[in-house]
C-alpha cells in the first residue's frame, strides 16, 4: 500500500488519472470503430507537432518568469519567418531551414523587447505576458495586411488586401520534417520519424543549454533570485536570456507545427497557442517555478492524447462533439490548479 502511495506521490494524481483515462480511450476506441493504429498515429503526429512549443516553456519557468502565456510572441515570430521563406519562393529542406533561421532571428528580436518588459514588472509577469502576447498578435494582424508581400500564393485573392488567413505550404516545404524517414506501419499508422527526431534534437539542445554556465545561472535565478544576486549574477540579464530563448524556441515550434499541418495560420490564430502549451507542461508535472524535459514529454503526450482521443471516441460513441469543451475544462482547470498551489 505504501508503495502505491509513493507512486501516486511521485507521479502525481492528475497524471495518473489522465493516463488511466487515456488508456481506457485506447481500449474503447476499436469498439466504436476507431482502429488503434489510427489513435496511435493521431497522438504521435500531434505530439510531434506541439512538442517544441511546449518545450519553449522551460527557460522562462526555470528563470522565475513564470508560465509563458506570451507564447504568441514567439508564434508570430515563427509565422513571420515562414511567410518570408515563402516570399523567397524557397522549397524543400532549404525552404524550412530559411524559415527557421528567419523565425529564430525575429524570435530573438521580439523576445528581447518582451524580456525587457517582463523585467520591469516582476511579480506580475503572467497577466502581463498574456496581454503582451495578445497585443502582439493584433499588431502583427496590421502587419500581415500592410507589409508589401508579393508571393501570390500567400496573398488574398479577389482583390482583397494583405496575406491570407491560412496559407498552404504544401508546395513549398510542407511535411519536410514529418515525411523525412517516415516509417509506414499500417495503412493508418505512419511514424513521423523526422519530426520526432527533430523534437528529440531540440530536447537535447535544451538539456545541454541548462548544463552550461549560463543555464546553471538561469536555474539559480529562478530558484532564488537573492542567492543569485549575492553570487554576482545579473538577475535581469539571466531573465532576459531566458525570455529570448523561450521565444526563439517557440518560433521554431510553430514552424514545426506548420510543416506538419500544411498551413501557416495568421491573424487571430496565434492567440490559440497560449493556453494549451502552458496546460500541457503543467499536466506533465511542472509547477510555476520548476520544469524539466520529462514534464514536457509526458505532458505533451497526455494532453494531446486527451485532445485527440477523447472527442474521437465520445463522438463516435454518443454522437456529441465535445472536443472544444474537454479542451477548455482540462487545460484551464490544470492552469488554475497550478496557480492556486502554494508556491514553495
Amino acid at each position: 500500500m505504501s508503495n502505491v502511495n509513493a507512486l501516486v506521490k511521485n507521479v502525481g494524481l492528475p497524471r495518473i488519472i489522465i493516463a488511466m483515462f487515456l488508456l481506457l480511450m485506447f481500449c474503447a476506441g476499436p469498439f466504436f470503430g476507431i482502429p488503434t493504429d489510427t489513435s496511435v498515429d493521431d497522438v504521435l503526429v500531434r505530439f510531434g507537432m506541439n512538442g517544441v512549443l511546449v518545450l519553449s516553456m522551460i527557460p522562462m519557468i526555470q528563470s522565475g518568469c513564470g508560465l509563458n502565456f506570451g507564447v504568441p510572441v514567439g508564434v508570430v515570430a515563427g509565422a513571420l519567418g515562414a511567410v518570408l521563406s515563402l516570399e523567397l519562393n524557397l522549397t524543400g529542406p532549404l525552404g524550412i531551414l530559411v524559415a527557421i533561421i528567419f523565425g529564430l532571428f525575429f524570435g530573438a528580436v521580439f523576445g528581447f523587447g518582451y524580456g525587457l518588459i517582463l523585467n520591469r514588472v516582476k511579480g506580475d509577469e503572467m497577466i502581463i505576458a498574456t496581454y503582451v502576447g495578445f497585443s502582439m498578435t493584433y499588431f502583427m494582424c496590421m502587419m500581415w495586411i500592410s507589409l508589401p508581400f508579393q508571393n501570390p500564393s500567400s496573398l488574398t485573392g479577389y482583390g482583397g488586401e494583405g496575406l491570407r488567413v491560412t496559407i498552404s505550404v504544401q508546395d513549398y516545404w510542407g511535411g519536410q520534417l514529418s515525411e523525412l524517414l517516415k516509417i509506414p506501419i499500417s495503412s493508418h499508422l505512419v511514424i513521423p520519424t523526422g519530426m520526432l527526431l527533430f523534437f528529440a534534437l531540440m530536447c537535447f539542445l535544451m538539456w545541454g543549454f541548462f548544463k552550461t554556465k549560463v543555464g546553471t545561472a538561469i536555474t539559480a535565478v529562478g530558484s532564488n533570485p537573492e542567492f543569485a544576486r549575492a553570487s554576482g549574477i545579473s538577475v535581469d540579464k539571466m531573465r532576459l536570456i531566458s525570455v529570448v530563448v523561450s521565444t526563439m524556441v517557440a518560433a521554431v515550434g510553430i514552424i514545426v507545427y506548420e510543416q506538419s499541418f500544411g498551413f501557416i495560420q495568421l491573424y487571430d490564430a496565434p492567440r490559440a497557442f497560449a493556453f494549451p502549451s502552458v496546460a500541457a507542461i503543467l499536466l506533465g508535472g511542472a509547477s510555476i517555478n520548476k520544469a524539466n524535459i520529462t514534464n514536457v514529454i509526458v505532458g505533451t503526450i497526455l494532453f494531446q492524447g486527451m485532445l485527440t482521443l477523447t472527442p474521437a471516441v465520445i463522438n463516435s460513441a454518443i454522437q456529441i462533439d465535445a472536443s472544444e469543451m474537454v479542451r477548455i475544462i482540462v487545460s484551464n482547470g490544470m492552469i488554475v490548479y497550478a496557480l492556486t498551489r502554494k508556491a514553495r
Binding site: 546553471t216 539559480a220 530558484s223 542567492f227 554576482g232 520548476k290 514553495r344
Partner: peptide, 21 residues
C-alpha cells in the same frame, strides 16, 4: 533567503559561486 538554493542539491549550493565567479 539569500544564502541557499533550497530547491537544489548540496553540490550545486557549494559549487555555484565558485563556478560563476
Amino acid at each position: 533567503g539569500v544564502g541557499l538554493l533550497l530547491d537544489e542539491p548540496i553540490d550545486w549550493n557549494i559549487c555555484f559561486n565558485a563556478m560563476q565567479v
